[in-house]
Design a binder for these strands. Structure first.
Lengths: 220, 220
DNA sequence: GACCACTGTTGGCGATGTGTCAACGCAAGC
DNA sequence: GCTTGCGTTGACACATCGCCAACAGTGGTC
């Protein structure tokens, strides 16, 4: 690794060293599950002693959570990372135009950061971890806010937010079909996500609202 | 645990013992991530020596894969597990009726096996595992076949299958909103999934097909 | 330029978890 | 009753993790 080219034992700024270790851990955790990556390997990759990993991140789990946080929070925030011409505000016009532009923007970000994007939306296993799930939930909320802002709808409607969160899962799955399996091209994903979102907010959400039966639990 | 009420060292049929250990491991892996569950704890829960776990499943990872396989494959196959009245074949009638009936049936299965269902659709943070992913992919294919059978559509269209697989992610997310967060009730999930699937196969899929641009990769 | 405090960095220790093996003991067969 | 088969166990060897005292490079002071 080029990051390990410095002589062993070289004294670095804490932020730099921390960032270096975190970066190496990220690359390893991206590819292999938690239990298969040892702190020793992380330290070797970073060219430092294993104890230094514990010094900066306390425990292996702490380091893992940092990696998850970075991977999960980055993609939503990466929407800021746009080409020079693209302004931050959304284009004016009717709903269809705004939605299409938002999806287009999203796909651009996804294509540019596809490695990290896939790492966050990717693996399903089981044995979910409450802390990890909280981080991913937070990222989903941010993404939901962005979608609601793009559609210009109220962001405090519980049912609406639930539907948009579910739509987020569709987004992740569709981008996987595009980037991993290659079964859909970018234009097809664009069409799928645009039409789905438009149908959802225009037709489906009102129907879902009317279908409410608050008195009954999931046993019904 | 009631399963450990037998005297220690009791000789059991291999299938029975194996099933018992697998069952105990399942309950533990359902709630906590892989690295937090030790084989010693699994053995203690099952009331056997730790070495016996290795004897039956080789390695801890092997046991985990068995658990994942059971959890992932069961839900699709559990569709067979229906009340006496419900025949296996789908109701006749137009597309809308068949889709509504299929979703209704699915939600019944999910409600009955909600513990196992949630364990499989719940997302682990990252660190996907190729073997685990293969198992879950297989389960997704089975689910896709069932949806295509319910809609009476061709099951060999790559684009169609990709869209239905993406729809599967919507199903998982919507059921999570229902069972975990309680933001949607069963009727609302039914409405959401029914309308979404109908819109997808009737309107969106043809548009997605026409949007194909085979020559360009994801970099475009 | 020499000394010193500060702190980034390291090797090693104890504790815990995992895989393997030979040996034990309960049930079936002659 | 003895033997055989195999389910089951305790113990050993090894790897990994968290922690701690000691080492060494860097900047400040005279």
């Amino acid at each position: 690794m080029s990051t390990a080219a410095v002589p062993r034992g070289r004294r670095l700024e804490p932020d730099v060293r921390r960032e270096q270790i975190l970066s190496c851990a990220l690359r390893l955790f991206e590819r292999r599950p938690y239990a298969e990556v040892s702190t020793g390997e992380i330290a070797r990759t970073a060219g430092v002693a294993r104890a230094l990993v514990n010094h900066y991140f306390g425990t292996k789990r702490g380091l893992y959570l940092e990696v998850v946080r970075r991977l999960a929070v980055m993609p939503p925030h990466a929407v800021e990372d746009l080409p020079a011409g693209a302004a931050d505000d959304l284009p004016d016009g009717d709903l269809e135009i705004r939605v299409a532009a938002s999806i287009e923007r999203l796909l651009g970000v996804v294509a540019r950061h596809h490695g990290m994007w896939l790492a966050t939306v990717g693996g399903e296993g089981l044995g979910r971890d409450e802390e990890v799930e909280a981080i991913l939930r937070e990222a989903d909320e941010i993404a939901t806010d962005r979608v609601l802002a793009a559609t210009g709808m109220a962001s405090d409607d519980i049912v609406l937010r639930a539907v948009i969160r579910s739509y987020g899962a569709l987004v992740k799955a569709a981008t996987r079909e595009w980037l991993v399996r290659g079964t859909l091209c970018r234009e097809q994903v664009h069409m799928l996500l645009t039409r789905s979102l438009l149908t959802l907010v225009s037709d489906t959400v009102p129907l879902v609202r009317d279908a409410a039966t608050p008195g009954r639990g999931w046993r019904g």
